[in-house]
Amino acid sequence: MSLILACHTAATPAAAADDPPQVIFNPKVFADTGDVVHLEGTLTGDGIGWKNNRSALTCYHKTKECWAVHIDSDGMQVFSFGPPQLFTIRLWTTDRIKADSAGGCGKPPNEWVIDRTRESAELIEHNCSEAKTYHWTLESPPFWKQVKPLADDSKRGR
Rank of each mutant, 00 (worst) to 15 (best):
P109F: 04
P108Q: 11
I124G: 01
N26Y: 13
F87K: 07
T137D: 07
Q22F: 00
K132E: 15
N53S: 06
A56N: 06
D32E: 04
P83E: 11
S73Y: 04
T94Y: 01
H135A: 10
I89W: 03
S120W: 00
A56R: 05
R96V: 05
W67C: 02
P21L: 05
S80N: 13
S129N: 10
S129D: 12
R118W: 00
C59Y: 04
H126Q: 10
V113Y: 00
A16G: 10
D74A: 12
D32V: 07
L57G: 01
N52W: 02
A56M: 09
P83W: 03
S120T: 15
F81G: 14
H135C: 01
D100R: 12
F143R: 02
N26C: 04
S101F: 05
P108R: 11
F25T: 04
G45V: 04
T94E: 14
V23E: 05
T137V: 07
K132W: 02
T42G: 05
V23S: 01
H70S: 09
K148F: 08
S55Y: 05
A131N: 13
S55E: 06
W112N: 02
C105D: 09
C105Q: 09
I24P: 00
K132V: 14
T88N: 12
P108H: 08
A102L: 12
D46T: 13
P27C: 05
G82Q: 07
L43C: 04
E119R: 15
N26T: 11
W144R: 02
E139R: 10
P27V: 08
I24F: 04
E111G: 02
A102R: 12
P108L: 10
P84E: 06
K62D: 15
W144M: 04
W144E: 01
F79I: 05
F143V: 07
Q77F: 11
F81W: 10
F143W: 03
K28T: 03
F143I: 02
K51A: 14
W112Y: 15
V36G: 05
T133E: 09
K148L: 14
G34T: 07
G75M: 07
D18H: 11
L150A: 13
F30D: 00
I71W: 14
L43W: 03
L39F: 07
Q77G: 00
W112K: 03
K107A: 14
N53E: 08
T117H: 05
K98S: 13
G49D: 11
T58V: 14
K51P: 02
H38V: 11
L138S: 00
